[in-house]
């Protein structure tokens, strides 16, 4: 069956303007050559540290941003260059749940107005009030609170309002951009379970974004790991979590408290040296090479990495497991990454 969403070579570079004349002096490489597809009815988890381009990817797919390069296909149709007007009917199919439950709801509108907005915009006939109240009930809000304002609700309830709004037009795809990151841990599970039950009831497809691997694991069928604007590993959740092939994935996973990630094996923490490089000037070759423990394992020296890591960008490809990884030296079961860097952190 044809995938719901296909993204190919997606790239977004934000120009940086400086000086009196606002000349372009460089670019933020927010998203670089990203390719993946989302199958109908599945949840694709997109993980990576803050600033790696997850939200930008989401906004590109929803056409809230214009792609610099690449194509986005929805149900086989190329929507990359559609105008705002041409996009309008498609807006019903593609929805988003936002990260910040405070800034994502207009403080001057009642819940009724907020959840009713999609009906008003698309000129949908019939009683908006009863439709909105049905939605409120479905997401676990009291329909009698129709006339209340966002400030009267807790963070978790506000996120439910955001979910109701996204659900209003019966979309096919909902992009959830860190929908629980701003919430208390005790409330995160409630919202995640709500999303799962809605997916089941309405045959929804999710692109689920988070920097928290534990959260993504809980909801995702497949997982894509991003680093500095690129996807470094993608595959079924069990494969990526069980036997990660990219050293970055392994490092991320090792930071998740055991038990939460559900990893089969007990992981020792892999501490990466240095910080994430700036997306304005990403490292050549594999963007991860300056911090990569595996590259150092290959050379046997903490200060050296193989030449191709420094010069050639590794493609996403099958790497010994069922998933795909963008690495010249994908992990093998006997690699002991924590040994490589933990005894001699570079630059300190």
């Amino acid at each position: 069956m044809e995938p719901l969403v296909e993204v190919e070579g997606l790239t977004k570079r934000f120009p940086i303007h400086r000086g009196l004349l606002q000349r372009t002096v460089g670019h933020v490489h927010a998203v670089e050559d990203v390719t993946f597809s989302i199958r109908r009815g599945e949840t694709l988890g997109l993980v990576g540290e803050s600033g790696c381009g997850k939200s930008t990817t989401a906004r590109l797919i929803l056409k809230l941003l214009e792609a610099t390069e690449g194509t986005i296909r929805f149900e086989g149709r190329d929507i990359t260059r559609l105008s705002a007007r041409e996009m309008r009917p498609l807006r019903r199919e593609l929805q988003m749940v936002f990260q910040d439950p405070y800034s994502s709801l207009n403080p001057r509108q009642t819940v009724g107005q907020i959840v009713g907005t999609p009906f008003a915009i698309h000129g949908i006939e019939g009683s908006t009030r009863s439709k909105v109240q049905d939605l409120m009930e479905r997401v676990g809000l009291n329909p009698e609170h129709y006339n209340r304002y966002p400030h009267e609700f807790s963070g978790g309830q506000r996120q439910r309002i955001g979910v109701a709004r996204a659900l209003a037009l019966s979309p096919k795809l909902i992009v959830c951009d860190e929908p629980v990151s701003a919430l208390d841990v005790s409330i995160q599970a409630q919202i995640l379970n709500l999303l799962l039950s809605l997916q089941h009831d309405f045959a929804l497809t999710y692109l689920f974004i988070s920097h928290d691997l534990g959260v993504v694991r809980h909801v995702s069928d497949r997982i894509a790991v991003m680093y500095l604007g690129r996807i470094v590993e993608i595959g079924d959740a069990g494969d990526v979590y069980g036997v990660p092939k990219h050293p970055y994935t392994a490092a991320l996973l090792s930071a998740v408290p055991t038990g939460e990630a559900g990893g089969e094996m007990k992981r020792e923490r892999i501490i990466l040296s240095g910080d994430v490089p700036s997306p304005v000037d990403p490292p050549p070759g594999c963007a991860f090479h300056p911090r990569c423990p595996k590259a150092r394992l290959v050379t046997g020296s903490p200060d050296e990495v193989p030449e191709n890591c420094r010069t050639e960008i590794p493609p996403l490809r099958n790497s010994g497991g069922r998933q795909q990884a963008a690495c010249w030296y994908p992990l093998r079961p006997d690699d002991e990454l924590q040994r490589v860097v933990s005894h001699e952190p570079r630059g300190s």
């Binding site: 207009n106 915009i121 709004r165």
Partner: peptide, 14 residues
């Protein structure tokens, strides 16, 4: 810059 503006746009508001 608030997310609710982006939300309105994603719903198709002009």
């Amino acid at each position: 810059e608030k997310e609710f503006i982006e939300s309105a746009r994603s719903l198709g508001a002009g």
